[in-house]
Design a protein around this nucleic acid. Structure first.
Lengths: 142, 142
DNA sequence: GTATTAAGGTCAAAAAAGGTCAAAGAGGTA
DNA sequence: TACCTCTTTGACCTTTTTTGACCTTAATAC
């Protein structure tokens, strides 16, 4: 199969990560776009579709002067956190199925969990999600 | 990461604080600007955006002869967390009053917030509560 | 006391990134 | 062919940084 532009950019970024030794790299969106002679939003597309949390990556960015896109290849902590979060979401889905909570409540919980967990330090996320699940179960028991 | 001027000034100030041993330093705005060959207001910008209360700092200043900018690294984490949590709960109460959420939803939120926040590091609790409040507001807007 | 000088503050414009979203294109597949 | 999914593009938006002109306040000199 012929590689698409997106595929080639993805590969390039992966090489950068591998080379860096660290588990984190920073790229300039415009610069990378220049390298591949494409529009900057193409880079955004690649990062959004290929360097997802599901795929084991985390991406952050900053706009303005000396802005950047940081892609980190997450370690065990992050993997554990991902699993705990997923477990929690599955738990919520089950609560929905059996109608212990409403659709709206389920969405609300997922939303606030996702957003607020961003403020929790990586190494504590897993515990955080577990505690949330426990607290939710605990509450509903009553 | 390509550091912006603001980043470098921030770093420099943090080193000054670390070196000083004390939890308070005083800088001359013009002098610092000179060091980094930038306009003085750049220093004001850095102090205003990076050494905020939220970030655990307090800044004061005096104009005129013998003027200075004093930055103290405050130990108000706990107090801030307490306040943020209270603010969040008051927000939830208001949502209850105007019936945007149900009694059950309000209790559920408070319960999971209290329990899960126990897993969040002290210095991040305040941000966590704020983020939760924001996420909740954000969710309900939609 | 008043004038001068030596600080720091404000605010808005310009510049420098990255983000969003929808439309158009490409490639497969029933 | 019709349809669907993934990719590519571009116009427009938001955020963050940098700069500079102008304002305010405090100490000191007269």
């Amino acid at each position: 199969m012929k590689k698409s532009l997106a595929d080639r950019i993805e590969e390039y970024i992966k090489v950068l990560i591998a080379r860096s030794g660290a588990q984190q790299i920073e790229i300039q969106r415009a610069e990378l776009a220049e390298t591949f002679s494409c529009v900057p939003s193409q880079v955004t597309y690649v990062v959004a579709t290929r360097f997802t949390e599901e795929a084991g990556y985390l991406s952050e960015s900053r706009r303005g002067g000396k802005g950047f896109i940081r892609i980190s290849c997450c370690e065990l902590d992050k993997e554990a956190a991902r699993e705990s979060k997923q477990e929690l979401f599955i738990f919520i889905d089950r609560l929905l199925e059996v109608e212990i909570i409403s659709q709206k409540e389920g969405e609300m919980l997922k939303h606030v969990i996702s957003k607020s967990s961003q403020e929790v330090a990586p190494e504590q996320k897993s515990q955080f999600f577990d505690a949330f699940k426990f607290a939710l179960a605990d509450f509903l028991k009553k």
